[in-house]
Design a protein around this nucleic acid. Structure first.
Length: 581
RNA sequence: GGACCUGUGGUGCAGUUUGGAGUGCACGCCGGCCUGUCAAGCCGGAGGUCGCGGGUUCAAAUCCCGUCAGGUCCGCCA
């Protein structure tokens, strides 16, 4: 039907008779003797010249027969890769007329996202969306090739799984053959891939769909994709190597440059320096500890376990209302309050190196020693803004870590790419209502061997063999060495407050399988949507998903979710409870 | 469950603070003109439940209450 693609034509093709197919991007009609039609396909746009009139409109699907020729002197278009040439003497065949699109198919046009999603098939014609889809395919291809090369075998795992409450809310699928019973859609293939290790698959991977019925965010959809992997007779070092290889291959496939090896940082260091377990290493602005400076202080607000600060360079000019807004944000993040200090040059001292002074409601409560200590510890200069949070250590860190990202010099758009492995996560993350520790990763995570003897006596201090991959402040994925021995597993369950009976009820099939020869194994999962979004320079994963949902979980195109047709529920043995109100 | 922001012809916006006739801009659409344009140009035209409901008022896009939708975030996401 076609002999060439629109975006491929160059000066070398001059003289070639071509047939092109695509959509009308633009028609410029110059009367009965001349018309230009910009023809678009997935490869780009080329100008077609019709020696007469042509009855086409935007987004008509047409075929064009013509001859490639150089453009007349002075009419080349530097904006188009095909701009040196045009297709002349064109004969246009309308393959399918089209109604005017609800919005213009062009990257520069901003359109409400609901309108875009409702007409996603039009939205995806836009060059940037085409590029995102193809970028995603490139990443998938590179990841698959890397896993294949490293001896991993791709295995598909079930979408209809058994309810195994693990943390995230699951989507439920009622069974027709067993009325009243349900499958659930897997929040990840975690248990299936561990069973594949018991099954002797040795090295498994899958580009897996995962489904979680939790509230949506810019970086979270109900359904998302992971490069999921698991390896037998492998530990943390092996897994980090496998994943690095795959991710760096993908980066190279996309950018043409292979990043250097990925540095590592312990979880404790990430929290202390960046206030998060997913540090964005593209800029500094690290957290500064002022606890020693305010030891025994008379400033009531700083009488806390930990006092930490960040310096916003040239931030002293921020308005009072802006500072109030930042304070509100700190409170929203859980802080009791936020102290700010504008650093100014002391007008009383002159010369090349004037003394520094602080402008803050709290300044008059500071001792001279505290004032000097704050300035020297932060290294702030005139014109800077110092933000201080005094609280429990972890909260002070996380609040400032979040403000660092929101206020700091975080680069936008593509590159540079700063990867980091965050290792030595804590085994547990706080305590639940019953006083039991909550697993930071999942209950099959192997404790750090050096900390194993404190599992029962001091669980909060126990590190795990869990690790995250972070890129530019996004959590790209996480993994762990799994427990493969029954004795350690039962100790962990016991610490978690999961009794033998409950463990059997929830994970019995896995524990049962482990009795038949489970190899030591470890694994990981890389969030594909996030990886592709970062490579695409998008700050929202919806931009790299063909048909995403809105934040309330709706699809404006299909109308999902929708009530079921009458009779369908009954056929499943289900009945609706009238909603209140 | 909660906070904040947004909602005005097909698209993007201004108008809302300080109530006074659906007033305006750009793009698109329809018709006409035009032989080198490329965000073509010129002339003319059509197109509106100001998200929805209620209230205040002589009068509401504008003020108040509620509600719906979207976005960002908190909670949630082992």
């Amino acid at each position: 039907m076609r002999t060439r693609l629109c975006g491929s034509l160059r000066v070398e093709d001059v003289g070639a008779a071509v047939t092109l197919c695509g959509w009308v991007a633009k028609r410029r009609d110059h009367g009965e003797h001349l018309a230009f039609v910009d023809l678009r396909d997935h490869t780009g746009i080329v100008q077609c010249v019709v020696p007469g009139t042509v009855d086409v409109r935007s987004e008509y699907v047409i075929a064009v027969e013509g001859v490639v020729r150089p453009r007349p002197d002075g009419t080349a278009n530097a904006e188009l890769p095909t701009g040196e040439v045009e297709v002349g003497e064109c004969v246009v065949t309308v393959l399918n007329p089209a109604e005017p699109p609800p919005f213009a198919v062009a990257d520069r046009v901003e359109v409400d996202e609901v309108v875009r999603l409702k007409h996603r098939f039009v939205d995806l014609r836009r060059p940037s969306m085409q590029a995102n889809l193809r970028l995603r395919a490139t990443v998938n291809r590179a990841l698959r090739a890397a896993m294949d090369r490293q001896g991993f075998v791709e295995v598909e795992t079930p979408l209809l799984w058994a309810p195994t409450p693990e943390g995230a809310r699951e989507f439920t699928v009622p069974s027709r053959l067993s009325p009243g019973a349900c499958y659930v859609l897997p929040q990840s293939p975690q248990l299936a891939k561990q069973l594949l290790m018991v099954a002797g698959v040795d090295r498994y991977f899958q580009i897996a769909r995962c489904l979680r019925d939790e509230d949506l965010r810019a970086d979270r959809q109900f359904e998302f994709s992971q490069l999921d992997l698991e390896a037998s007779f492998a530990g943390q070092e092996d897994v980090l190597e496998f994943v690095s290889e795959a991710v760096l291959d993908a980066a190279e496939a996309v950018t043409g440059v292979r990043p250097t090896d990925i540095p590592r940082m312990t979880w404790a260091e990430a929290l202390d320096r960046y206030g998060t377990d997913k540090p964005d290493l593209r800029f500094g602005m690290e957290l500064i500890d002022l606890t020693a400076v305010f030891e025994g202080t008379g400033v009531k607000a700083f009488g806390a376990a930990s006092v930490k600060a960040i310096v916003l360079q040239d931030g002293a000019g921020l308005s009072r209302s802006r500072l109030d807004g930042i304070t509100d944000r700190a409170k929203q993040l859980g802080a009791k309050g936020l102290a700010w200090f504008r650093v100014t040059a002391d007008p009383g001292t002159g010369g090349d190196d004037p003394a520094l002074a602080l402008d803050s409601p709290l300044d008059r409560f500071l001792s001279d020693q505290e004032r000097a200590g704050l300035l020297s510890a932060t290294g702030a200069s005139a014109g800077d803004l110092v933000l201080v949070v005094a609280d429990e250590y972890r909260l002070a860190c996380t609040v400032l870590g979040q403000l660092r990202v929101e206020l700091g010099g975080r680069p936008v758009g593509e590159g540079p790419y700063r990867y980091v492995w965050v290792v030595d996560f804590p085994m547990f993350d706080g305590f639940d209502e019953a006083g039991n520790p909550v697993p930071a990763h999942h209950p099959f995570t192997m404790p750090h061997p050096e900390d194993l003897d404190r599992l029962e006596s001091d669980p909060a201090s126990v590190r795990s063999q869990a690790y995250d991959l972070v890129l530019n402040g996004w959590e790209l994925g996480s993994g762990s060495v799994r427990i493969h021995r029954a004795d350690i597993q039962s100790r962990v369950f016991s610490v978690l407050g999961i009794g033998e009976e409950e463990a059997q009820a929830r994970f019995g099939f896995l524990l049962g399988a482990f009795r038949f020869g489970a190899p030591p194994h470890a694994g990981f999962a890389v969030g594909l949507d996030r990886l592709v979004a970062i490579f695409a320079g998008e700050d929202n994963i919806r931009e790299v998903i063909a048909f995403p949902k809105t934040q309330s979980g709706a699809d404006p195109m299909t109308g999902a979710p929708k009530p079921l047709a009458p009779g369908v529920l009954a056929g499943l043995g289900l009945q609706l409870i009238p909603s209140k109100g």
